[in-house]
Amino acid sequence: MTAEAANHVPAVCDRASEPVIHPRWVRVTHWINALAMFVMIGSGWQIYDASPLFQSLYFPSQIALGGWLAGALLWHFAAMWLLVVNGVVYVTLGIMTGRFRRKLLPIRPHEVARDFVAALRGRLSHDDLSVYNAVQRLLYLGVILAGLVIVASGLSIWKPTQLKYLTAFFGGYDTARYVHFFAMSAIVAFLVIHIALALIVPKSLRAMIIGR
């Protein structure tokens, strides 16, 4: 919590006087999440291949994780703990510290449209990394929601009897598989944009590592 306090007031440290953009808890949960997602998506692709939802789509095992179905399932149901425990810590702190409200809200449609056009023209500034533009807010909030959907739909596939009401909420077992797949697709699409932009604006990557 002290790190978050440092986020409100520009931090005055011995070695650096730049304000902290990402408090430590954000950075730690971010990179744990990156690892968990890497394992979950890689193993999820291998699991998908055992019974593809779409005839023409399958994931070559060179880019998947686990080697075969049983291996992928072991990875998936191990990394699930990392993903969920870390995710709960992140969302709880995000709400309790007010970071989500401060950084991600409000999201106004006309601002999203304006910033989206500006982004396409290459005129969207990343000068102040501590302030998210409207497109960033929408994407970051969106990926958090996709994270909730992928965990909930995953639980409903894993436990369609013990959690049968959750499974029913997603339209039944077979439909929940599609929900789980499309939530993965949304997250992967986000990652493509997110990683590309982090590489284009390297100081944003630095901020997520050292905080400023």
Binding site: L35, F38, V39, G42, S61, Q62, A64, L65, G66, G67, W68, A70, G71, L74, A78, A79, L82
Partner: peptide, 17 residues
């Protein structure tokens, strides 16, 4: 067939895990 993908990615993930 082995349970694990042989490669840098899985080894990296493994050591971290």
């Amino acid at each position: 067939r082995r349970l694990f993908l042989r490669g840098a990615a899985s080894l990296g993930a493994l050591s971290m895990l």
